Simulated assay, not measured.
Amino acid sequence: MDNRDAIGSWLSGPRAAAEQAGVDFGYRGEQLGLPEEGPGSIARPGRRLGALVVDWGLSLLIAYGLITHGYDQATGNWALLVFFVMGVLTVGTVGFSPGKRLFGLRVAALATGRVSPARALLRTALLCVAIPALIWDRDGRGLHDRLAGTVEVRI
Rank of each mutant, 00 (worst) to 15 (best):
A130S: 13
S116P: 01
I67C: 03
C128I: 10
T93M: 00
G40N: 06
P45Q: 13
G76F: 08
L102S: 04
T68E: 11
V153D: 02
T112W: 07
V91K: 01
G29H: 08
G22N: 07
D24L: 13
R28K: 15
D72I: 01
G92I: 00
L34F: 09
V88Y: 00
E19K: 13
D145E: 08
R141H: 06
R48L: 12
G65K: 05
A74T: 08
T112L: 04
T112F: 07
L121V: 04
T68C: 06
L110F: 05
N3T: 09
R146W: 02
L134Q: 09
D137L: 05
L32D: 14
G46R: 10
A43G: 10
D2M: 04
V115S: 01
H69M: 09
G142C: 03
A51H: 02
V107D: 02
F84S: 01
G40Q: 08
A18D: 06
Y64D: 07
L143A: 11
R101E: 02
D72R: 11
E37H: 15
G76M: 05
G40A: 07
N77Q: 13
A17W: 05
S41M: 14
I7V: 15
G50P: 07
Y71F: 15
L52D: 05
L102R: 00
V153G: 00
Q31H: 09
A130L: 12
R44G: 15
K100V: 02
M1Y: 10
T93W: 06
